[in-house]
Simulated assay, not measured.
Amino acid sequence: MSIYRKVQAVEKVFKALEKELASFKNGTGLNCLSGCGLCCLNPNITATPLEFLPFAYELHKNGLAYQWLEDVQSSETSTCKILRPMLSEGETGFCSQYQYRGLICRLFGFAASRNKMSQLELATCKTIKAEFPEQYQTAKDLIKDGGKVPIMTDFYHQLRAIDTELGRQLMPINDAIEEALKVVLSYYAYRKPYRRRA
């Protein structure tokens, strides 16, 4: 499968997830605290290269892939390279590439994972629990009653089905971005460059 087809397949999974997330948020009233971004500051976030293939592809199309690869490789921070450390006026979030954020960035806070007893539990943060206690309880009740909730493993399995190798290996988020860039740059090294249609 070509890189372009893989990117399309990943974006299709993300689009389906966004619909499920919107439904879950609407049904529970659960949301992030505006301007928070604490989860983005976690230096131990892991991801797969496949999650960032659309981002790497977009950078390649715009002639920025090599620059980003160099920046990621020379970065001394373990926090996500896409993270914007300061908000400017009018900005609502810390992700500088929100459209191309990874799967965990989309799932965390509003999806369920299975505990040791194989029961679904909401995977969310202390801030959401503290700031939105009623909505958090509504979400817990919905999950307990068998209501519709995005399940983390389901979406990771969907990605893995697109490309087993790129979709199975979890690594630090910046390493995942770097690997995605290398895959795209390697793929197009001996192919015609992408040309935008007029």
Score class of each variant (00 low, 15 high):
Glu178Asn: 08
Ile151Ala: 05
Met171Phe: 09
Gln158Ile: 01
Glu178Tyr: 07
Val149Thr: 14
Gly167Arg: 05
Lys148Leu: 11
Ile143Lys: 07
Ile162Asn: 04
Asp154Asn: 13
Asp145Lys: 15
Val149Met: 12
Pro172Gln: 01
Met152Gly: 05
Ile162Val: 09
Glu178Trp: 04
Thr164Pro: 00
Leu181Gly: 05
Leu181Trp: 12
Pro150Tyr: 03
Asp175His: 10
Ala189Gln: 15
Ile143Ser: 05
Glu165Met: 08
Arg168His: 12
Gly146Ala: 07
Tyr156Val: 01
Glu179Gln: 14
Lys144Ala: 15
Leu185Lys: 10
Pro172Trp: 02
Leu170Asp: 04
Gly167Thr: 06
Tyr190Ala: 12
Gly147Cys: 12
His157Ser: 13
Ile162Ser: 03
Ile162His: 06
Val183Gln: 10
Leu181Ser: 06
Leu185Pro: 07
Phe155Ala: 00
Leu170Cys: 00
Ile162Gln: 06
Lys144Arg: 15
Phe155Gln: 02
Asp163Thr: 07
Phe155Leu: 04
Val184Gly: 06
Leu181Pro: 08
Pro172Leu: 02
Asp154His: 14
Ala176Val: 10
Gly147Met: 12
Thr164Leu: 13
Lys144Thr: 13
Tyr187His: 15
Glu179His: 10
Asn174Cys: 04
Leu170Arg: 15
Asn174Asp: 07
Thr153Phe: 11
Tyr156Trp: 14
Ala176Lys: 11
Arg168Ser: 15
Leu170Ser: 08
Asp175Val: 01
Val183Cys: 02
Leu166Asp: 04
Thr153Gly: 06
Val183Met: 06
Lys144Ser: 14
Ile173His: 01
Ile143Pro: 03
Met152Ser: 13
Ile162Met: 08
Tyr187Gly: 01
Ile173Cys: 04
Asp145Arg: 15
Ala176Arg: 11
Arg168Leu: 09
Gly146Met: 09
Lys144Gln: 15
Pro172Asn: 03
Gln169Ala: 11
Arg168Cys: 05
Val184His: 09
Leu166Met: 12
Ala180Ile: 07
Thr153Trp: 09
Lys182Tyr: 06
Leu185Ala: 02
Asn174Phe: 04
Ile177Thr: 05
His157Val: 08
